[in-house]
Nucleic acid binder design. Structure first.
Length: 760
DNA sequence: TTAGACCATTAC
DNA sequence: TAATGGTCTAAG
């Protein structure tokens, strides 16, 4: 309404939403969503020549916005009930011959959008692999065929052209220019002339150029299950046979043979002619895991991050055609378009990599649960250290708990010793390996056992210390710079910033800066000095840059060409090496003292997982955990392999603080290059949110705004707000209501994260 | 998220 | 008067 004009009386009542007014017509409308943060579904008229082709799940190009920019969208439905009051724009083009997604998968993506507060179109855009969108690995080709009523004898044409037509007549399939020219013994010009005269008809199509290579693996038969494994398997088979959805939480200590249980359950699924999806953390997608599945099933698709677009497209195609029995992959494999899903397995359920940290910020476990529920199939979650979220569901009787307490072949769990490093003379001198651990390593090596040393810090030293100004920081991020001795540079681990280390502090000019703390590189140097004859391998994201180096490194450790493996997270998970007799944890405290909701849980998980890397063969394994807080309950529980007591205590704590799993959380992050605008905007937005939750009585608790734990990241200042509520619906409603009214200042960006794991 | 519309300011 | 830039708003 123009300013200064009084509204007429009849305009005071809000107009009815005209889009509600729809009528059955003989027009056809396509419902389209876009890869933008828009909640609506837009309708477009389908022109007559596309009526037969259009289907939900295809991508389309449509005029959109004031300038009718041709914009890519996803068709999510087709209807003859079209809105009548507004003139619809017309669909311009259909980009896919076949739908990229089934109706069921479209519905699932809609659910994801609602659950994780992102638009349907954004979800679709991230679910469909780039290689599928680009049709990577296929090429457009033009082939020629004869028109239907051609009488070759009647034609008066040059000999070369006649030869071309004869070749075509004898061929059973249409031919490309190259083939045609070769067989007719001519160049391309006769073919061109024929085309111009209309004596041959061109046809567009796509042909495959890429194909994933097939790896032959020696087949194996099923292993004998022990009683516990058998019981777990039977529970899964029951759900399978009754064709009902149930989530089964398989809590099995490290080395208890969870994978064998999955495999035998999948065998049943495959026998029904159905397919299974197995999600594993990316880091576990080692040749070892892959071989294990390939050895047991004829057709396994492995989806990992280093697949080319073409390979990914090819696999997607194979999966959709039902040619694959088992899909093994990381997070996004939950969207594998298997035609007849039979079972979903998530191994290492507690791993944070199952949560995507870009929009849509879905958790593959929760998407899996929803997909399994909709398709009436069981979901198996496996872990030695289940998340408290999953455990609590089992305790409430929503999911079923299956427990494997024994390692296979009755192997004992490794003995874990806590080493108090507070009074260790070597540690006080700044070394990373204390006396006890040093002796342990020497002993293990003498006995020809292999050793794993775990330290969750890459680089040589995490801080360059100025006595007056403390650590040298990244100018763009609120973190200290890490000294990488091999490169001779101080690096920021949050962005790409690097500088040569200064002689004097740049702030106060004081000389005498010192490198404090130990990363994997310094640990490597220390090991070389202390154990000069040991064959040593360091694994972290710096040393494992080259493609394939990760697998190669693990292979050489497996084959005994390496005695001592040291590294970060990378070596903590899922590795199965029978000859490892000692695992050393350099510092169990680093994770523990972070002011994060899940710091205790992560510490417990990490120690348990690392400890699980030993004692997996005939030889006994032991674990030495260096810590400055040996009395800390979490560390004690981990040392005793006592998940139940750990969980009991942590659940009590979560209940007392109304944290997940006793409430639901969401996190709103705002960032800007200008600190004052994020601060002001977060306050303003917090106001709107608080007002909305009060007005609508939603019962959402809102914390903040406050500067985020990482105050500054890649030049951006960050503030955040935390929401807690009884259920997702309250937060969803709050967001739906409040977010459209934010009118955020253009230099402030905003992200909403439902069920956040990373609270930094 | 994007781009046009609208308005104000600036340069020529 | 045209060009530029910031802000607002709607998107079928």
């Amino acid at each position: 309404m123009p300013p200064g004009r009084q509204p007429a009386l009849f305009e005071l009542e809000p107009e009815p939403d005209r889009w509600e007014l729809a009528a059955e017509t003989d027009c056809l409308a396509a419902m389209v969503v876009f890869n933008r943060p828009l909640d609506s579904v837009y309708s477009y008229l389908v022109p007559d020549d596309l009526r037969e082709i259009i289907a939900p799940g295809q991508r389309v190009r449509v005029p959109f916005g004031r300038g009718d920019q041709l914009t890519l969208g996803y068709c999510v439905g087709v209807t003859t009930t079209v809105p009548t009051h507004r003139k619809l724009k017309t669909l311009h083009e259909i980009l896919d011959r076949e739908p990229l997604l089934s109706g069921a998968m479209l519905d699932l993506t809609k659910w994801i959008g609602e659950r994780y507060l992102s638009s349907w179109g954004q979800v679709l855009d991230s679910v469909i692999p780039a290689g599928v969108k680009k049709q990577a690995g296929t090429r457009q080709i033009v082939t020629f065929e004869l028109p239907p009523d051609l009488d070759l004898a009647q034609l008066k044409i040059p000999a070369k052209q006649r030869a071309v037509l004869e070749v075509l007549q004898q061929s059973s399939a249409p031919l490309t220019v190259d083939v045609l020219a070769e067989r007719a013994g001519c160049g391309s010009s006769p073919i061109d002339s024929l085309r111009r005269k209309g004596l041959i008809v061109p046809r567009r199509g796509r042909s495959e150029v890429a194909q994933a290579d097939v790896i032959e693996v020696e087949k194996q038969s099923d292993l004998q299950l022990n009683a516990e494994q058998q019981t777990a398997l039977i529970s899964i088979l029951e759900a399978l046979r009754e064709q009902r959805h149930e989530t089964l939480l398989l809590h099995g200590v490290t080395g208890s043979g969870k994978t064998e249980v999955y495999i035998q359950a999948i065998r049943e699924v495959v026998s029904y002619g159905r397919q299974a999806i197995v999600l594993v953390p990316e880091i576990s997608l080692t040749p070892q895991t892959i071989r294990r599945f390939r050895a047991r099933f004829p057709s396994v698709a492995v989806l990992h991050s280093h697949l080319s677009d073409a390979d990914r497209h090819w696999h997607w195609q194979q999966i959709a055609e039902g040619k694959v029995q088992v899909v093994v992959g990381a997070r996004s494999a939950i969207f594998a378009p298997v035609p007849q899903l039979g079972l979903i397995v998530i191994d290492e359920e507690h791993e944070a990599t199952f949560k995507q940290n870009s929009t849509p910020r879905y958790h593959a476990r929760d998407v899996a649960r929803e997909r399994a529920r909709r398709e009436n199939v069981p979901l198996v979650l496996g872990s030695a250290t289940p998340t408290l979220e999953s455990l609590q569901r089992a305790r409430l009787g929503l999911d079923r708990l299956l427990t494997l307490k024994q390692r296979v072949e009755r192997r004992p769990l490794p003995h874990v010793t806590l080493v108090d490093t507070r009074n260790d003379p070597l540690i006080s001198k700044g070394q990373a390996i204390g006396r006890a651990l040093g002796q342990g390593i020497a002993h293990a090596l003498r006995e020809r056992g292999q050793v794993i040393l775990f330290l969750n810090l890459r680089g040589f030293s995490p801080v360059l210390w100025c006595p007056r100004c403390s650590g040298i920081r990244c100018p763009d991020c609120d973190v200290t710079l890490t000294w990488h001795k091999d490169k001779g540079l101080l690096l920021c681990h949050s962005c790409e910033y690097s500088i040569a280390p200064p002689e004097r502090c740049e702030k106060c000019g004081l000389p005498g800066l010192r490198f404090l703390g130990t990363g994997t590189q310094r640990l490597e140097a220390e090991v070389r000095t202390k154990f000069p004859t040991a064959r040593l391998l360091r694994m972290d994201s710096d040393s494992m840059r080259a493609p394939g180096s990760h697998d190669e490194a693990l292979e050489s450790f497996r084959e005994g060409r390496v005695d001592l493996l040291l590294g970060t997270q990378m070596i903590a998970k899922g590795l199965d090496f029978p000859n490892v007799t000692l695992v050393g944890v350099i510092d169990a405290d680093t994770l523990l003292h972070q002011p994060e909701l899940r710091s205790a849980e992560r510490t417990f998980q990490l120690i348990s997982q690392v400890a699980g890397r030993t004692g997996r063969g005939d030889r006994e394994g032991r674990v030495l955990v260096q810590t400055m807080s040996p009395m800390e309950p979490v560390i004690q529980f981990a040392a005793r392999h006592d998940y139940d007591s750990f969980a009991e205590r942590e659940l009590e704590h979560r209940a007392a603080t109304h944290s997940p799993p006793f409430s639901l959380m969401a996190r709103l992050i705002l960032r800007s290059l200008t600190e004052s605008s994020v601060q002001a905007e977060s306050r303003r937005i917090a106001g709107i949110l608080r007002q909305t939750t009060a007005e609508k009585n939603l019962g959402v608790r809102i914390l903040g705004p406050a500067p985020a734990l990482i105050t500054k990241l890649r030049k951006y200042y960050r503030y955040h707000l935390q929401f807690t509520a009884e259920n997702h619906a309250a937060i969803q409603e709050l967001w739906r209501d409040a977010a459209p009214r934010f009118q955020l200042h253009p230099d402030v960006e905003m992200t909403i994260d439902m069920d956040p794991l990373d609270l930094r």
